[in-house]
């Protein structure tokens, strides 16, 4: 299930480091090794741990479950997803 919107836990701590840009590159740096939802433009979802990506948004994932219409249709120990199919990559645990 998609996690609820994350509380803003940055406000009480010191301001983010000057390197904070919010850029796609930085998002990807933060999300590697985390549990993610990858949705393809076809609507199929892959949930698993993001191993790595490249500039084409090709993705390697571990412990991957494939969801079609909300039910698990396949499981893969490792999976390579070709980047052109990717609609989004969403963090499924707090970053």
């Amino acid at each position: 299930m998609a996690s609820p919107p994350l509380p803003d836990d940055r406000s009480p701590v010191p301001p983010p480091p000057p390197s904070f840009t919010g850029s796609p590159t930085e998002f990807l740096k933060n999300v590697v090794g985390k549990y993610v939802i990858v949705r393809l433009s076809s609507g199929v979802d892959y949930r698993g741990v993001l191993s790595c990506l490249d500039g084409y948004m090709n993705i390697a994932m571990e412990q991957t479950e494939e969801y079609v219409n909300g039910s698990v249709t396949n499981q893969y120990g490792d999976a390579f997803i070709r980047g052109n199919n990717v609609l989004y990559i969403s963090a499924a645990e707090p970053l």
């Binding site: 796609p24 609507g43 990717v86 609609l87 963090a91």
Partner: peptide, 26 residues
């Protein structure tokens, strides 16, 4: 890169909404 995201899938039967945390949209 978006946060506090709502996804809307618009079909003739209606709109399906999905809440997402921080997301990279292609």
């Amino acid at each position: 890169v978006l946060e506090d995201v709502t996804e809307f899938e618009i079909t003739p039967e209606g709109t399906k909404k999905t809440a997402l945390a921080q997301t990279l949209l292609n």
